[in-house]
Amino acid sequence: EQLTQNVLKSYHETCQLRAEDLQRRRWDTFSREEICAYQKKSMEEMWQRCAGRITEAIQHVVEFAKRLHGFMELCQNDQIVLLKAGAMEVVLVHMCRAFNADNRTVFFEGKYASAELFRSLGRAEDLIGSIFDFAQSLCALQCSEPEVAFLSALVLVNASRPWLQEPVKVSRLRRRLELGFQLLLRRTRREGLLDRLPPQGRLRALCSQHVEQLQALRRRHPPALLDAFPPLYRELFA
């Protein structure tokens, strides 16, 4: 019970956007002119913008992790390993809250945006499509806020990440989180959720696709391109 309260409190304290606000604004979409303006941006500028938004979201995930009971008791190597491997995955899970499955738009820079708004990302368009498909499938599960909170914690605290120094300690923490999640699901009669969650490999594949696209971008541009990206983004993905 204590652990559940801690997961929920950590999640609420570090949530970037409130669910009510996202819901209230879900039909506030970009106009045709605004979409065109985004499409006319250079590929470099659009990548930088997206990297900026991803980095902001990741900073909230780091704060979430810090508040999770047990996370800061892991050795520093393992804290870094878990965040490096899991932060982007958590951001993708959170995206289902900011996604309107009825018109396939996502909250981006103040309004809801369809995939076409990201056209200037060039070849990364496939990645956008995959991310939208993932958000759509997660939306179909209609997860509550407490469920998203636990899913975030469980994506992060994963004992099978490579390079962990104390995997046993991580798996002990994970086990406690799993128990808390099961109790919550039982209480809310949502046990079926566990069987309907997308396979873990899907998140991993999206994250590798993101890194591959970033590498392809770097091959086509001078190294100075990355100077304009947020330092935390470069540290995690470049």
Binding site: M72, L232, E235
Partner: peptide, 14 residues
Amino acid sequence: KHRILHKLLQNGNS
């Protein structure tokens, strides 16, 4: 190697 992550983790509960 992960200077920024280290810093973020060490900065209290900001």
